[in-house]
């Protein structure tokens, strides 16, 4: 291995400064006393109090969590099914259409997805609210889940499943007892991805929700359009910290699982 050149060190330092400074500044200024966001006037946590007392934010947060939970669970089930179809079902009529439908929503501009789903809900005469946002989020999130899960399905040894079937398992049992435990980490990361995608989404939610349901990004959007505010800084800081803690925990759990798996595989090889 070559040692790090000064060029690499500089580009990494500048690169990560670029990625993290804006958020760091946002976090620092969320503790600013002054209402003027760009002038530092002393340390204060009062904006956090304002956020937590603001019932509109809390209501929106609750709607967002409900939507994210429901849609990520649905998306995980549907996405895992789609992944199994993609990797294991072999050839069937409409396979090309199927894989196209899995990949297309991920590259589709959000404005188009949102518009088309809204027009569908209207032509069906559906009342728009939490339910319609859940349907919309499930549809694009399941595609991400299926990509994550199928990459795991491709890499694991299919003979394990075949062995279970030979030993008298039904296909359902083989899936539950052999396949599912092996792909579980991918399913969990798929769920997490679906959950954060839903938490994050502004455009599709704005199109598909009705007056009865406002998500947190929609709420933030309407206030951010008017400019920078210390309350939004505090709210953003809370959201950044929640996500950072979640992602770091998840990756630590994942790392532990990988280490354990490697140890088990090594042990199994020793036996064989």
């Amino acid at each position: 291995m070559r040692r790090m050149t000064w060029f690499n060190v500089t580009s990494l330092t500048l690169g990560f400064a670029f990625l993290y400074l804006p958020m760091l500044i946002l976090i620092i200024f969320s503790f600013n006393e002054s209402k003027l966001v760009t002038v530092w006037a002393g340390f204060s946590t009062k904006w956090y109090g304002e956020v937590l007392r603001n019932t509109a934010f809390l209501d929106a947060a609750w709607v967002t969590i409900k939507v994210a939970f429901l849609s990520s669970c649905l998306a995980t089930v549907l996405g895992t099914m789609a992944a199994i179809v993609m990797v294991r079902a072999g050839r069937f009529r409409g396979r090309t259409v199927f894989s196209g439908m899995i990949y297309a929503p991920m590259v589709m501009p959000e404005v188009i997805t949102g518009l088309s789903l809204l027009l569908l809900f209207i032509s069906l005469g559906m009342d728009r609210g939490v339910f319609t946002i859940v349907l919309a989020h499930t549809t694009f999130a399941m595609c991400y889940v299926s990509v994550v899960v199928s990459s795991r399905l491709v890499s694991f040894d299919q003979s394990l499943e075949e062995a279970a079937l030979d030993l008298g398992c039904s296909p359902v049992q083989a899936f539950r007892l052999v396949t599912l435990p092996i792909i579980a980490p991918a399913v969990i990361s798929g769920w997490l991805l679906a959950f954060t995608l839903s938490l994050d989404d502004l455009v599709i939610a704005s199109f598909t929700s009705g007056p009865s349901a406002t998500t947190l990004p929609m709420k933030i959007w309407s206030s951010v359009r008017l400019g920078v505010s210390p309350e939004i800084n505090a709210l953003s800081t809370i959201m950044i910290l929640v996500v950072a803690i979640g992602v770091i925990t998840a990756s630590l759990i994942n790392k532990r699982n990988v280490v354990r798996q490697q140890r088990e595989e090594a042990a199994a090889e020793k036996l064989a």
Binding site: M23, L26, I220, S236, V243, A244
Partner: peptide, 16 residues
């Protein structure tokens, strides 16, 4: 990691 945090917030952070 930044990819997981809200897109909206990341864009907003540049306004200030």
């Amino acid at each position: 990691l930044p990819f997981w945090t809200s897109f909206l917030i990341r864009v907003y952070s540049w306004m200030g």
